[in-house]
Simulated assay, not measured.
Amino acid sequence: MHGSPGVSIIHPRVVDDADELGKRFVAASPFPHLVIDSFLAPGLAERLLAEFPSFEHGNFVGDDGRPGGKSTSDKVRELGPAYRELDDAIQSPDFLQVLSRLTGIDGLLYDRWYLGGGTHENRDGMSLDPHVDFNFHPSERWHRRLNLIVYLNPVWQPEWGGCFELFRDPHATPRADVSITPAFNRCALFETSERSWHGFDTIRLPPDQAHLTRRSIALYFYTRDRPADEIADRHTTYYVKRQLPERFVEGRELDACDIAEMRALIAQRDEHIRMLYAENTALRKAQDVGLAGHVLYLAKRAYVRFRR
């Protein structure tokens, strides 16, 4: 199998050890996942890094319409020969079979639109709140089952933040159960479900490394079905704002950094509340327009007037 085009992008050691790695995946806590170093074949990761798009080339405009600290590119085949090679491989039956051996998930489907995926780049100060991903493909009747993230950071220290985090329950504690440094050619592979809480902590680069960014390639895979006890109503990505750090305890004297972090957490919650209210207003406005809006208005009016 090593020689097939779809598998040749993976390091041969990973293919040889796929069944044993699959046992580790299923048994992992807090939910099924794997961390695999040197995941891609020698040379391919370097070429992907060399062809990684500039920050300005991607979509770096946030939900608020303003430029932000994150840039994404989902037009993967347009990025260069290495990305076309990657795209050809990950849709092949042989590659999908290796993923099934690594995870125990059969019938995996490739997303040719890279919705939410592709290249991701984050600047200093950025973080990603704990969340579970949207559970159905936005345009197909597919269940989202698997995320595969490859990091492309030749120089990175865990104390710089940006570490990929897995949580058992982010409502209960600010501490991640697993923290993964985004080292070069390291792969984080995990099953997406209603309990696959994940994110990354704030990037805090030292002054002499401030030019660096956190770079990765995100690949998402789906199936047409999934176990009945894992199926939930269709939902978008669900975020949980981070809890206060554990160092905030009774009797502690707060310093300037503590105050700044507390204000930032409060500001994030305020912004999240504003966004939810804006979405609610937009939905209500949409309900009020056209024939459907008029029918809904009459139905609600009749319900209020005659409910007794």
Results as ranks from 00 to 15, higher is better:
G22T: 11
F136K: 14
T281Q: 15
L115M: 11
G58Q: 07
W142F: 12
D17R: 09
P130I: 08
Y297I: 00
G199Q: 05
A188V: 15
F248E: 06
L44R: 08
A267V: 00
R66K: 12
P12H: 02
A82R: 03
Y303W: 13
F52S: 12
V295N: 07
G65E: 05
Q97L: 15
H171W: 12
G58V: 02
L244V: 13
I9R: 04
L254A: 10
R123I: 01
R145S: 14
Y297T: 12
D63L: 08
V98A: 07
T202F: 01
T173V: 11
A50L: 05
H57Q: 14
S193G: 11
L205S: 12
F136N: 11
L152A: 03
L291Q: 05
V289W: 08
P138C: 02
Y110C: 07
L115Q: 14
L152G: 03
F248A: 07
H11P: 11
R214T: 13
F248D: 00
S38E: 15
E56D: 10
G3A: 13
L296Y: 02
A18R: 14
F200Q: 06
D229T: 11
R84H: 02
H198A: 02
L115W: 08
V35P: 06
R252T: 09
R195A: 02
G161W: 06
G58H: 02
L99K: 03
P206F: 05
E250G: 12
G58F: 06
W113I: 00
A292Q: 12
A27M: 04
F184R: 06
A89V: 13
I231F: 02
E140Y: 08
V14T: 14
K75M: 14
P67W: 05
R24L: 13
D229M: 07
P182D: 04
S71V: 06
H11W: 03
R301V: 11
R101A: 04
G162R: 00
V249I: 10
Y239I: 04
F52P: 08
M262D: 00
S8K: 11
R186T: 06
L86G: 01
G116D: 12
P30A: 04
H131F: 06
L44C: 08
V76S: 02
D258S: 09
I105G: 08
V240N: 01
P245T: 10
S4P: 05
I10N: 00
D129K: 12
Q268A: 04
E279T: 11
V35Y: 01
R144S: 00
A278Y: 09
F306D: 15
S193E: 06
A218I: 02
G118D: 09
H11R: 15
Y239G: 09
P12A: 03
A89M: 13
A18Y: 13
Q243T: 10
C187V: 03
F95G: 00
F190D: 01
A278L: 00
G251Y: 03
T236V: 10
Y303F: 11
R112G: 05
F95P: 10
S179F: 04
E279S: 15
R112H: 01
T181G: 02
F184H: 06
L34E: 04
A292R: 15
V98Q: 12
K23F: 00
C187H: 04
V61C: 10
V15Q: 15
